[in-house]
Design a protein around this nucleic acid. Sequence first.
DNA 1: TGCGTTGTTTCACC
DNA 2: CGGTGAAACAACGC
Length: 305
Amino acid sequence: MPELPEVETMRRNIEKSLIGRTVVRYELLSPFLLRHSSLPTLDPIVGKNVLGARRRAKILMIDFEGDLTMAMHSMLAGQIAIIRADDSRLVAGHPFPSPTGEFPAKMTHLTVWFDDGSQFYFSDIRQFGWIRLAPTEAIQAFVESMAFGPEGIGKDPVDVDTLIRGLSRRRIPVKTALLDQKLLAGLGNIYVDEALHRAKIHPSTPANQVPLEKMPALLDAIQWALTEGLRQGGAKVIHTKAYPIDNFPEVHGREGEACPVCGTTIIKVRVGQRGTYLCPNCQPLPEGVMPPQGARTRGSRPVDE
DNA sequence: TGCGTTGTTTCACC
DNA sequence: CGGTGAAACAACGC
C-alpha cells in the first residue's frame, strides 16, 4: 500500500530519470483512472517537457511545461515503473506486478513514452488509484483543500507539539488518529502499525490516554518507521502478507510470527475497521481500556446492558 | 461468491 | 456546532 515512503520513492525515481525528458506519446488503457480529472484526456502532456516531481502526503505530482501538472494517488495498489533506454529499472509502490517482470503487465493502465527511449508505466491491480491532469495552480488548490498536516519526515516534519495537540483531545483509537492525514501526512496502515509497535503503544489506546511522556518516543517511532520504509524503497506487503527485508516490517503482515523484539506471537485485530498487527506483550492494553472489538455488522448497534 | 482490502468523503447521531 | 463511528465508494483476487 503506497504510503509516504513508497510515494516518495516514486518521486525520486521520476526526478532521477525523467526531468528534462519530453513526452512522445502515451497509451491510457483505463480512462477510468481520469474519473476525477478536470482535463478529460492526457493529450496536453504530449510534446511537453517534465519540469519536476513533487509529493504532498501520498499524492505524487509531475510538473510539465505549460503550467500543467499531473497528480496521482496510488491508493491501495498503485505502482510506477520506469524502464530506461539502457533497460535499467526504477520501480516503486505496490510490489505487484513483479518489478522484474514484463511491462506493460496485465494491470498496467498507463504507458508514457519519452524522447530518450524511457518508458513510464502506471499499474494498479485494484484500480482504486486516480490521476488528475489540470493546470498547476488548480492542482495546487486541490492539494491545499485537503488540509494535510505536516509531513511525517522530510523538510519541516511534524513535531511533538503537533502530535500532542492532535491526540490529546481525541477519544478515538490512537491508531485511527495517526491515520488522519490532517494530523500528520504520510502514515498508512503499514507504517502506523510499525510505529505503534516501536513505541510500545497498543493501537486501541484512546488517543487522549497516550501518556504525554510517551509522545517524544511516539514521534521518534513514527519517523523511524517512515525512514526505514524509505531506506528500503517501500515495504513489501502483498495481500496482507509481509515479505520483510532486514526484519522490516516487524509486525505488520506478520500474524502468527514471532515478535522480533520479544518473541511473542504477533496477533491481528481490527481497530477502526482496519486490519491491525501488534505484539500483545510489547503493546499491552492500558488499564481500564476495553480490548478491540470485532467489526460490528452492518446496521447493528452496541448493546447496552 | 461474498469478503477483505485503502484513503477519502459523506452522513447520522449525540 | 464538532467530534465520532461507520457506511459508501472505487474494482478485483481469493
